[in-house]
């Protein structure tokens, strides 16, 4: 806006009230510098601005304040540290317990319906070329550990472990898994199982071998890769393990029987729903 004598008073009032932009204020001051007769008017209006009245203070301020909600400062105490340590100890104890439990489950996997843990595999040479003739059994004590959940493993002729899915009737020497304890009667039967007559013969066969048989067996098996000799003492240990498994089995069976007699009740508020076998 162009400043002239008609609007300069309004411009001065706007300037005093702080309503002019920097550019407009510069233009006004420049005009006044060129026309000093307006400077007196500018100074008069500037002097009319009320000075601050700092001595006037409201006395009842505190009465107007409202109680504020207390905010407690955060102070990390030692309690959480102790709790963290306790939690760590509990975690470690839990992990140890789980490890122990899983190790127990490995033993328990020998229960009916699961894969046998320890079996004594005794390769049996069966002559299938002449049906009806008594089979020639050549027992060889060999122990292996089978951990497969799906298959019963057999020991092949060359000592390599193979699934017991050999075709029946094949012209090869067949190997069969023979349990060393009656508990193995509950174990799954391998495919290509020997006839009952052969099994009866094997069951009657003593575990201990004669010295000559042992020497021959050792000589023939010592060259096989991965073969380990097993002594009677180890077999005794295995029997102990099987006895333990039998105990676990009995325990589980008793618990299952107990569960069958148990009545389960679900509470929904005041209602109760009972489940009985």
């Amino acid at each position: 806006m162009e400043i002239n004598p008609n609007n300069i008073e309004e411009q001065i009032l706007l300037y005093v009230d702080g309503e002019l932009s920097t550019e407009e204020a510069g233009n006004l001051l420049q005009y006044i510098a060129l026309h000093p007769q307006w400077r007196i008017l500018l100074e008069e209006y500037k002097s009319l601005v009320l000075p601050p009245e700092d001595e006037l203070v409201f006395e009842g301020k505190e009465a107007l304040l409202q109680p504020e909600p207390q905010v407690l400062p955060f102070k990390p105490s030692r309690k959480p540290v102790l709790m963290r340590r306790a939690a760590a100890v509990a975690l470690i104890a839990g992990a140890a317990g789980l490890t122990w439990l899983f190790s127990r489950q490995d033993i328990g996997s020998a229960l009916p319906g699961s894969t046998p843990v320890a079996l004594v595999h005794q390769p049996v040479a069966v002559d299938t070329t002449t049906p009806g003739a008594p089979a020639t059994v050549t027992p060889t004590p060999t122990v292996m550990i089978a951990r497969s959940n799906t298959q019963t493993m057999t020991t092949a002729k060359n000592g390599v472990v193979q699934p017991a899915t050999a075709l029946p009737g094949a012209q090869v020497a067949r190997h069969e898994s023979t349990p060393v304890d009656p508990i193995a009667g509950n174990l799954p039967v391998a495919v290509g199982e020997a006839p009952p007559k052969q099994r009866a013969l094997e069951m009657q066969r003593p575990l201990a071998l004669t010295e000559a048989e042992s020497a021959d067996a050792l000589a023939s098996k010592a060259s096989l890769p991965g073969w380990l000799p097993v002594s009677d003492q180890k077999l005794e240990g295995l029997n102990g393990l099987i006895a333990h498994i039998r105990g676990v089995k009995d325990s589980v069976a008793s618990k299952a029987a107990q569960l069958k007699r148990t009545t389960f009740v679900i509470r929904l508020g005041e209602k109760e729903i009972a489940f009985r076998k």
């Binding site: 006037l56 203070v57 301020k61």
Partner: peptide, 23 residues
């Protein structure tokens, strides 16, 4: 909030009182 209200009391009470007195 209550805190903001109290802040208004502390900061504005004097100015309001001055204005009312002069008015």
């Amino acid at each position: 909030t209550t805190t903001e209200y109290n802040q208004c009391v502390r900061e504005l009470a004097d100015g309001l009182y001055r204005f009312a007195c002069k008015s």
